[in-house]
Design a binder for these strands. Structure first.
Lengths: 351, 351
DNA sequence: CTGAAAGCGCTTACAG
DNA sequence: CTGAAAGCGCTTACAG
C-alpha cells in the first residue's frame, strides 16, 4: 500500500531496461539521447502509475542544483514584503522553483548568518533586500558563481543587478503634491539610515522643498527603536515644531507610529496636519480620513525580479550584464492631503 | 581565494586521519565514539579555519533528514499568517531548522500539489492550516511516518495533533459584549465554509444569540469571491436588513470589505452600527473609531506549534499521543462597540 | 539505440 | 581508539 522509496533502479528492473534510459526519459532527454518513443512512453506510463518521485538529494548531489531560491527581506510580516513574497512564490512555483524566505530585521549579522544557511542548503540564487554591511558576503557569492539580485534598495559599489522603485521621483511628487495643495511647513519622518532607498526618498523631499523657500524639517528614527519610543519621538518632534502642517512618512511602519502620535496629540488630519505615506496599505482607504500614499507596484516588482532571476539561473553560461531596473510608482491621493483651501471651506467650522 | 567544495575527504587528507573521524567530530559524536579530545580539537580548529560547510545533499541522501519544515497557510500575505510565520521562523532558526512556507489560497488541489512538492524536498515535518478535502493526503503523510501538525483549524476524523484558538468561546464573548452594550440586532458576516474554525465561530454567535430572543442574521460569503462582490454583497445585506445595528466579522479580510461597505453606505460606527472583528490588526486601533477585535495570541500559537513540531521530529521513536491544544484569545475592546447608551449621550447630537 | 560504471559527499556498521 | 568500505539515489561520459 505504502509506496515509498521507489528508485530509478526499481523502475529499471521492473521494465527490464537500464537506469540510464530511465533517467534520460525522466529528464526529458529522450529525444536528444535517441530513446525510442515506444520506450519513452512505457517509462512515462509506469512512472505515472507507481507515482515515482525522484530523490531530491541524489539529484542535488549530482547536479548541484536545488530549484530553490533564497530570499532575504527585512521583515516577512511587513505588508509590502509579504505581498511581494507571495507574488514571487506564485510565479516561481509555476516554473518548478521554491522560494525560501527569511527576515533579516535589517540586521547585518543576521543577514550574514542567513546567507550562510542558504549556502549550506545550496539555493540556486539569491534575492535580497540588503541591510547595510553585507557587501563582502554578496561579493563572495557572485565570485563563487551564484546569481544575486538585489531589490527594494541597493548597496553602492557592488556590481550586482537590482530592481528598485523610483524613490526620488516618487517622494518628490508626493511632497510636491502637498506643496501644491497649500501645505506650508512639510516635515519628513524617516529612518536613521543610509540605505539607498532612504537616501533617495529624502532626496526627493529635499528637491521638492528646494523649490520653495522653506527649511527642511527632518525627523530621523532608528529602525530598531521600540514602537512606544517611536511614537514618543514623533510627538516630541511635533510639539517642538508647532509650525508643521504636513507630514511625509518614509515608510509604512513609521506612518503607523506617526498616525498614533497624531491621535494622541489630538491633531486632526488633514485639518491640522496633512499626511502622505510612502508605501500604500490596503486599510489606508478605510481610515477617516483615508490616507494618501505612494503605491509601489507589487506585481510588477515581483514579476521583474523573479523573471530576471529565473532567466539567469537557467542560462548560467550567458553572463548577464549588471542591470538596474527602476520602476515607477503611483501616488494614490486620498483625504489626508486635501487642499488646505478646501479644508477651510469644508471643515473650517469645527476648529 | 575561493573556498568552495571543501569536502570531508580534503579535511581527512589534510589532517592525515580518516574521514570517519572527521564525520564523528562534525556530528558531535566524538565523545560517544571515543575520539581523543586532542584530535577533536584539532579537527574543529581546522574546520573553523577553512570555513568548511557540510554538503546538505550528501547528508540528506544518507540520513533522509533535511532540517526543513514545510508549512502551508491560507495566504502568507495575510497579517495573521505572516506574523505567525515570522515568529515560527525565528524559533526554528535558533534550533537549526528552516521553515518553508506556501500559500494554499484555501484551494484543495493547490494544497495537494504543495504537499507533493514538500515530499520531493523531503521536509522533516508538516505544519498545516488545512483547506478542506486533503484528509487522504494527510493520512498518507502520517502513515508514511511524517509528523504532521494542524493549526488554526482542524479536519474532523483525522488522528492528527492540532493547535487552535478557542473559536467558540471567543466568538461567544465578542457577541455577548455587543449584547451587553445594548446592541439589539447583531448580524454575523462569515465565510461560506464548513471549516472547523468557521463553524466554531458561528456556533459562538449562535450561542450568544440563543440567550436573547433575537433571530440569527447570517451573511455567508465565498472565500474566492472578489473584493468588489464581497463589498456589494455586504451592502445588499445591510440594505435588506435595515434593523441590523451591529456586525460581527468572522475574519480580518471580511472586515475589510465590511468596513468599506459601511463607508460606502455612509453608516456611522458605532452610532449606526457597532462592529467587532475576529482577528486583530495593528492598524485597527488607529481607525476612527478604533475597531474592537478578538486578538489571537500569535506568539503563544507559534511557540506551541513549533515546539510540538521540533519535539516530535527530534524523538521520532517516541510516538507522541495525538493532542489538541486549545488556546484562549482576548477581546480588545475599542470604540467600534461602545455602549449604545453612551453613544446616544456622547454622539447623539450629530444624527 | 542502450547499458555498465563512476562518482557526487556524506554516515555508520563493522573490523581491527 | 581509528580506518576501510559500503551505500544512500541519482546523472552522465563513455563504450559498444
Amino acid at each position: 500500500m505504502i509506496k515509498r522509496k521507489i528508485t530509478i533502479n526499481d523502475i529499471a528492473r521492473e521494465l527490464s531496461i537500464s537506469k540510464t534510459s530511465v533517467s534520460f526519459v525522466i529528464n526529458g532527454k529522450a529525444r536528444e539521447k535517441n530513446i525510442s518513443t515506444t520506450l519513452e512512453k512505457r517509462v512515462l506510463a509506469y512512472i505515472d502509475e507507481i507515482g515515482y518521485r525522484p530523490n531530491h538529494f541524489a539529484q542535488g548531489l549530482r547536479t548541484g542544483k536545488t530549484k530553490m531560491i533564497g530570499m532575504l527581506v527585512e521583515d516577512i510580516s511587513d505588508p509590502f514584503f509579504s505581498a511581494v513574497a507571495r507574488m514571487m512564490e506564485e510565479i516561481a512555483y509555476k516554473k518548478g522553483y521554491k522560494i525560501l524566505y527569511s527576515s533579516t530585521e535589517n540586521d547585518t549579522q543576521k543577514a550574514k548568518d542567513l546567507i550562510q544557511m542558504y549556502r549550506i542548503r545550496h539555493v540556486d540564487g539569491y534575492i535580497i533586500a540588503p541591510p547595510p554591511g553585507i557587501e563582502l558576503e554578496l561579493k563572495e557569492l557572485t565570485d563563487d558563481g551564484f546569481f544575486v539580485l538585489l531589490f527594494d534598495r541597493t548597496l553602492p559599489g557592488l556590481e550586482i543587478s537590482n530592481v528598485v522603485v523610483d524613490n526620488l521621483v516618487s517622494s518628490y511628487k508626493a511632497v510636491k503634491h502637498l506643496i501644491d495643495n497649500g501645505y506650508k511647513n512639510i516635515a519628513m519622518v524617516t529612518l536613521l539610515s543610509d540605505q539607498t532607498q532612504m537616501l533617495d526618498r529624502k532626496a526627493g523631499y529635499v528637491k521638492a522643498l528646494d523649490e520653495t523657500s522653506k527649511p527642511y524639517l527632518l525627523k530621523k528614527i532608528a529602525y530598531h527603536d521600540k514602537r512606544e519610543n517611536c511614537i514618543k519621538e514623533i510627538q516630541d518632534f511635533l510639539i517642538a515644531n508647532q509650525e508643521i502642517d504636513a507630514l511625509f512618512f518614509a515608510t509604512n511602519y513609521l506612518a503607523e507610529s506617526g498616525l498614533e502620535a497624531l491621535k494622541l496629540l489630538n491633531r486632526h488630519i488633514p485639518g491640522d496636519i496633512g499626511v502622505v505615506v510612502f508605501d500604500d496599505h490596503y486599510l489606508f482607504k478605510l481610515f477617516t480620513p483615508s490616507i494618501t500614499a505612494i503605491a509601489q507596484p507589487i506585481k510588477e516588482i515581483s514579476e521583474q525580479v523573479i523573471h530576471m532571476m529565473l532567466r539567469s539561473i537557467s542560462d548560467p553560461k550567458i553572463k548577464k550584464p549588471v542591470k538596474t531596473l527602476v520602476i515607477p510608482t503611483s501616488l494614490t491621493i486620498r483625504g489626508s492631503s486635501l487642499p488646505r483651501t478646501k479644508i477651510n471651506g469644508d471643515f473650517g467650522l469645527k476648529d
